[in-house]
Amino acid sequence: MIRTDPETPDVYLTPVEDVFVRNHLGPHPRLDTDTWSLSVEGLVERPLRLDFRALEGLSQTRFTAVHECFGNPLHPTVPTRAVTNVEWTGVPLAEVLELAGPRPEARHVWLEGADRGDFAGESGLSFLKDLPLAEARAEVVLAHGMNGEPLRPDHGYPVRAVAPRMFGTNSVKWLTRIVLAAERPEHVFTTRLYTRVLPGESVVRPVREKDVCSKLLAPKDGGTVPAGVRELAGYAWSSGEVTAVEVAVDDGDWLPAELERRGPHPSWQRFRLRHHLAPGPHRIRCRAVDAAGRVQPLTGDRNAVHEIRVTALVNG
């Protein structure tokens, strides 16, 4: 493990009050555990309606995962850098699906939240996402806790879906309905928006797997530091493990940073490089490579390399 430097305090778990909030459909719905329920319907042998107490009685799991906003679906190539690392507590979706018994023709899982509103010229929408049944069964968790406390209202209280290897748009908040179906749903948030063509491809794909990405957290962008040897540090993440991070200062070469291995959970990985900063202004960049061989692009896409500017000052 990389030891924490006093200049760069360890923020491995993002405090709940610092986790970003993104809503498409206006104010969050007012739900509580006494009246909330989750329906499981469609191509299942045994349609279900679970209340919160029944959900709590199922097998529980706890894991840490990167939670990243894909960005504005109307501007899908613009970087947002909205990312956090959160410990989730909840019930594996597979446990609930086992109770319902998916029928052989079921191929997709639809996840629907209780929020309603207007977006992109359409009125009366619900927030609806879909995933292939096999992927949803393997990794989605119905979470009711963040960092050891109940979900807060703006983070999906009382229950949300969490798809830990995917962008946050797939982790539906205020979850109240699960539908198993043979086909994908035609909906603004499934087939019209949150789609893209990946580099080197021509097929339009739904936004799911996270890109390889990294972010510098120290020094602070726009700040000042004493000239001399300083720690340049941050976090890197991907849908799989990040295998390398490089840092470049000004027009210098890309230098390999020290990188933590990823543990058993899909969390972010800390990197650091100690580097001499001469007095004056500096541009610092970082780029990551993942186990699939993907490299952050220098420019032009939502996961383009992160860049900060700092000024090194002479002591005294």
Rank of each mutant, 00 (worst) to 15 (best):
P132K: 01
L133G: 04
E135Y: 06
E135N: 08
A136V: 07
E139F: 01
E139W: 07
H144V: 12
G145A: 11
G145C: 10
M146D: 03
M146C: 09
P150R: 11
L151M: 11
R152H: 07
H155V: 01
G156C: 07
Y157K: 06
P158M: 08
R160D: 05
M166Y: 09
G168I: 02
T169C: 14
T169P: 04
N170I: 08
V172K: 02
V172Q: 04
K173P: 02
T176K: 05
R177E: 15
V179N: 13
P185M: 02
P185V: 02
H187S: 07
V188I: 10
V188E: 04
F189K: 01
T191S: 12
T191D: 10
T195F: 00
R196W: 13
L198F: 08
L198Y: 04
G200S: 06
E201Q: 12
V203D: 13
R205N: 09
P206W: 06
E209F: 11
E209C: 08
L216T: 13
L216V: 14
L217T: 15
K220G: 14
K220P: 10
D221K: 05
D221E: 07
G222I: 10
V225D: 04
P226R: 07
P226W: 02
A227G: 06
A227V: 07
A227S: 12
A227L: 04
G228D: 01
G228K: 02
G228T: 09
V229T: 12
V229L: 14
V229D: 10
E231A: 13
E231Q: 12
Y235N: 05
Y235G: 02
W237T: 03
S239K: 12
G240H: 04
G240C: 02
E241A: 15
E241Q: 11
V242D: 01
V242T: 04
A248P: 05
A248V: 08
V249N: 10
D250Y: 01
D251W: 08
D253H: 07
P256D: 05
E260F: 12
R261D: 14
R261S: 14
H265P: 15
S267C: 10
S267A: 15
S267V: 11
W268E: 03
W268V: 10
W268F: 03
W268D: 06
W268I: 07
Q269A: 02
